[in-house]
């Protein structure tokens, strides 16, 4: 039976451009495998379109809140349309970094020590006193990021206590809650995990080497600012530990179909999970496509298989 898929891309978020690029790539990949696919934005015309001509499944190439915080997935559940990827509840958990880190810690997965605080606590309790406590408890350097959000936007490394306040202001421009965690120096890695029906398996690990040391928005999406190594240049024993830890995180968070786990290996060779992404970027410079290519598989074939899984889940339900 020929499948018809709606690829959702665009949305009103800081990552709209990235999403549109991901969406076009997904569209081409699906079409190359003979699946009938169309691109659609997440706007007021979406629900009427889903109702008028329900697709067999939806692939979400939306980044930022709409694609990742679970809310759109909840709406797709309401419409009875199956989709590829984590369910609404899991996406909500994974999207909120402090919640995801708490779940990882419960499951015994290492993640840098952290504190998450809303803007209002700083104004009520006095920012200077709270920042002092953070620095004396967590030490330096620190990583400041919005509790929710992606693409490295609003994130900053703080090496001196005096720079913490500015980093907090930058972060609060993106979200009303900030996550402050211990900065782990080491090798940045992305582990893409795919489950085509035989259980989750890790693709080759991607090592990220930003030219200027920080993997921020510009480093992610400007050609030439970052070098990737696939597979990562790790000792086999370290690579095995990284893969095991990432699979552990995938299971602890209850992820589904495909996800990207962000890991840093500290200088002593220990992996630490920084977070995960339920709607990983799929642009030319995104990490999941690099891993799929290194694995010697075709993006279209992987997505096609995931679409069939989603359709199968819906039939069984």
């Amino acid at each position: 039976m020929e499948l018809r898929v709606l690829v959702l891309a665009g949305g009103l978020s800081y990552e709209r451009d990235v999403s549109l690029r991901s969406g076009r790539r997904v569209l081409d990949a699906l079409k190359s495998t003979g699946i009938e696919a169309e691109l659609h934005d997440a706007d007021v015309s979406l629900l009427p379109a889903l109702q008028a001509d329900p697709p067999d499944a939806v692939v979400i190439a939306l980044h930022g809140a709409t694609g990742e915080d679970g809310s759109l997935r909840g709406v797709l559940d309401l419409c009875g349309v199956p989709y590829v990827g984590a369910d609404a509840r899991t996406a909500r958990l994974a999207w909120d970094k402090p919640s995801a880190k708490a779940r990882l810690r419960e499951a015994g997965i290492p993640t840098p020590d952290w504190v998450a605080l809303p803007h209002d606590r700083f104004s009520e309790l006095g920012a200077v006193a709270v920042l002092d406590r953070i620095v004396s408890r967590l030490g330096l350097p620190l990583m400041v990021k919005p509790a929710q959000g992606g693409s490295g936007l609003g994130a900053a490394v703080v090496r001196e206590a005096a720079d913490l306040a500015a980093a907090m202001v930058g972060c609060f421009a993106y979200d009303s809650t900030a996550l402050v965690e211990q900065y782990v120096a080491g090798t940045s890695l992305a582990v893409s995990i795919i489950d085509l029906g035989t259980g989750p398996s890790a693709l080759p690990i991607v090592e990220i080497v930003p030219r200027d040391g920080v993997y921020d928005y510009a480093a992610r999406y400007t050609a030439g600012l970052t070098t990737w190594h696939v597979p990562a240049r790790l000792e086999p024993s370290v690579a095995a530990r990284v893969t095991e830890t990432a699979l552990g995180a995938y299971q602890a968070l209850g992820l589904r179909d495909l996800s990207r786990i962000d890991v840093i290996v500290s200088e002593d060779g220990e992996p630490h999970v920084l977070g995960c992404n339920v709607s990983p970027g799929l642009t030319e410079t995104s990490l999941l496509p690099l891993a799929i290519q290194a694995a010697g598989v075709d993006l279209g074939a992987v997505l096609g298989a995931l679409v069939e899984r989603a359709v199968g889940r819906a039939r069984r339900a």
Binding site: Y14, D17, A127, L131, L153, M168, A218, T222
Partner: peptide, 21 residues
């Protein structure tokens, strides 16, 4: 946050709008 110090000019990397969308 009690003023956050002087705003330091940042080097332009990539396109004019490349630092953030």
């Amino acid at each position: 946050f009690g003023g956050t110090g002087p705003i330091t000019p940042q080097r332009r990397r990539g396109s004019a709008a490349g630092d953030a969308p």
